[in-house]
Design a protein around this nucleic acid. Structure first.
Lengths: 329, 329
DNA sequence: CTGTTAGCGCATTCAT
DNA sequence: ATGAATGCGCTAACAG
C-alpha cells in the first residue's frame, strides 16, 4: 500500500503539502495540488483512516446498542440511523446484545476501547448510569438521567388515542395486554394513558401483563405473545376492546379470539402499537398506533452528532404518533 | 485518558512489560503482572484499540455489504453474522446500500480506507470484480468468481423439493412466480430446478416474472409483490400449483387468490421460499422452503476469518434446505 | 524476565 | 505556499 510519504516523494513535495491538499486545510497552490492529485491517482493511494483517527483522536464512529437487530422495529430504526450517520460521514458499529446484560457490558467496553465518538442506545439495562458519563450518549425510548438526551415518540398520546378510538367505537370493557417490561422505559406511558383515560371515562378495564422472558430469537417472541394471548383470551371473555403494548401481541390476540369463535372487530376491537411494516399482510389490516420510526432514528443520529460537536441539544425530543385506521377496530 | 506510558511509569516498569502483561505475549513475572493490573485499575486505563490497530495493521473489523438491513431475511443474517464475528473478537461495520450501486461503491471505498480486514457481501452488483481483489472477500448467494468463496443454500434442491411436493399433491399446471432479478445470483437455481423437474415430469408450467424495481423501503417490496400477484392471478386462472421466489410473493399470491374466490390449498397450492420468521402469523401457515439462515451466516463469518488468517477455505459452502409443511400445500 | 527504542501513517506546528 | 520535524499510543525487536 502506498502511503502519503510515497505520494510526497513522487510528487516532489513535502508530506505536509500532500496532507493539506487532501484535507483542504491551509492553502496549496492549484498547480501543486493538481500534481499531487495526479500522483495519488497513479499510485492508487488510499488515505489510511486508522492512522488519521489515531492522529486526530477522532474516529467518526458511533456505536448502536440494540436488543435485537433481527426485530422489525429495531431493524427499521437501525436502517435509518445508519443512513443518517453515513450522510454525515459517520460509521456505525452495531451491538446486538440479545438482551443479555453481560454481553451488553462487554460491548460497552469494546466500544470504549475502540474510541467511538458516541453511543446511541435502545437498551433496557441499567448499565449507563455510572459507566460512561464521559462519552456522548443518546437514548431512545428510555429515560436514563437528566444529562442524557432522550428521543421518543409520544407514548402517552399514543395510549390516549387508542383508548379514545375504542371508546368511540362503543367498547364497554377494555383491556391492556402486553409483556410486563423488565426495565423501565417510556413505553409504560402507553399503559398510564390507558389507565387514566379509562378512569376518566368511567369504563371498567383490566391490565393483563405477563413477565417477559429473555428473548433470544424472534420466533420465541412470537411464541411468548401467543402464550400471553391464549391466557388472556381464556380468562377474559367479557372484554370487548383491547389495546396491546406492541403489534405482535395484537396479532396473537386476534388469532386467539378467532380461534374461540369471536369476530374481530364485530365482537372485540383490537388496536396494536408500533405500526412496523411486515412482508406478511393479514387478510385483516391491523388497526394500530404507528411510531415515526424514521424521525426517531434520524433525530437520534443528529442529536448525537451535535453532542459530539459540543453543541447545545434538546434534552427531550418527543415525536407525535399516528393512528392507523385498519380493519380491527 | 491514561495511556500505557502512565501505567508503566506508575507501576515502575517499562512500557514493553505492560504491553506483554496485557496481551499475554512474552512472559511476565506473576508479581509484576499483579502490580501492573493494580495500577491499571487505579488509573482506569483502557487500551486504545485504534493505536493498536494502527500499529499492528490489523483492525479486527469486517464490513458487511447488504441490500437492506431492514429486510427480515437480511436482518436475520446480519444478526447471526454479528454474533459469530463478536465471538471471534471481530467487530462488524454494516453497509446497507439500499440496492443503490453508487452508494455501494462509496461504501466500498469507505471500508477500504478504514482498513477492514475483510468483507462479506450479499450485494447484487457487479462491483467486486476488479475493485478489491486484494481484500479477503466472501459472498453469499451469488457467484462472483472462482477466487471468491461462495456461501449459499442449495437453491436447486429447494426448487426441486417444492416441485415434488406440488406434483405429489396432485397439481396439474404449475407456475413459478417472482421478481425477475436484475442481477445474477444463485437464487436463479430455484427456477432452473423448477423448469427441469417440470419438464421431466411432463407437467405444463409457466414462468411469471416481473422486473424488480429499485426497492428503498420494505413497504414498497410488499407493494411490488402485490402488483406481481395481481397480474399473475388475473392472467393465469388455470394454474393449480405455485412456487414463488420468496415468501413475500407467496403471501401476496395467496391473498390475491382468495380475493378472486379460490381456495388455498384446495383449489391452488402455494409454496414459498425463505422461511424467515415473522411477528405476524397468518391464520394459514405458509408451506415453504426454509433456508438455514443461521448456518449461512456463521459459515460466512468463519470462512472470512479463515481467509483473513491465511488458511485454506472451501470455495463453495452449500447448505441443505428444509421443506416446511404448512397449510398452503 | 524486563527496559529501551523504533516506527506504524498521518495532521500539525514551526520555520522558511 | 511549503518542507521538515514532532508525536499521537502501541507492539515488536533487541539488548541486557
Amino acid at each position: 500500500m502506498a502511503t502519503m510519504k510515497d505520494v510526497a516523494k513522487k510528487a516532489g513535495v513535502g508530506m505536509g503539502t500532500v496532507s493539506r491538499a487532501l484535507n483542504n486545510s491551509g492553502s496549496v497552490k492549484a498547480e501543486t495540488r493538481a500534481r499531487i492529485l495526479k500522483v495519488i491517482e497513479e499510485l492508487d493511494y488510499t488515505p489510511n483512516e486508522i492512522a488519521r483517527s489515531f492522529k486526530k483522536q477522532k474516529n467518526k464512529l458511533v456505536g448502536l446498542m440494540v436488543p435485537m437487530i433481527n426485530h422489525p422495529f429495531f431493524a427499521e430504526l437501525t436502517y435509518f440511523i445508519e443512513d443518517e450517520l453515513f450522510k454525515n460521514g459517520y460509521k456505525l458499529m452495531i451491538c446486538s446484545s440479545s438482551t443479555d446484560r453481560e454481553k451488553e457490558i462487554e460491548y460497552l467496553q469494546m466500544l470504549k476501547k475502540n474510541q467511538v465518538d458516541g453511543i446511541i442506545t435502545i437498551s433496557y439495562h441499567d448499565i449507563y448510569q455510572n459507566e460512561l458519563i464521559e462519552l456522548p450518549l443518546v437514548t431512545i425510548d428510555r429515560y436514563i438521567s437528566d444529562e442524557i438526551p432522550l428521543i421518543s415518540s409520544d407514548n402517552y398520546l399514543g395510549g390516549s388515542m387508542a383508548v379514545e378510538h375504542l371508546i368511540n367505537a362503543g367498547c364497554q370493557k377494555l383491556a391492556y395486554v402486553g409483556g410486563e417490561p423488565r426495565y423501565k422505559s417510556t413505553v409504560s406511558d402507553r399503559k398510564r394513558a390507558f389507565i387514566e383515560l379509562a378512569n376518566q371515562s368511567n369504563i371498567p378495564y383490566t391490565i393483563f401483563e405477563v413477565e417477559e422472558p429473555t428473548i433470544a430469537i424472534m420466533s420465541s417472541e412470537m411464541a411468548y405473545a401467543e402464550h400471553v394471548a391464549e391466557e388472556f383470551v381464556k380468562t377474559h371473555p367479557e372484554v370487548d376492546g383491547i389495546i396491546t403494548s406492541a403489534d405482535v401481541f395484537a396479532y396473537a390476540v386476534i388469532n386467539e379470539l378467532i380461534k374461540v369463535g369471536k369476530r374481530v372487530p364485530e365482537d372485540v376491537k383490537v388496536i396494536g402499537y408500533d405500526g412496523v411494516p411486515s412482508l406478511i399482510k393479514m387478510d385483516r389490516q391491523l388497526s394500530t398506533i404507528k411510531q415515526p420510526v424514521e424521525a426517531l432514528a434520524r433525530q437520534s443520529a443528529n442529536v448525537l452528532i451535535s453532542l459530539i460537536d459540543g453543541e447545545e441539544v434538546p434534552m427531550q425530543s418527543i415525536f407525535p404518533v399516528e393512528y392507523i385506521d385498519g380493519d380491527t377496530c
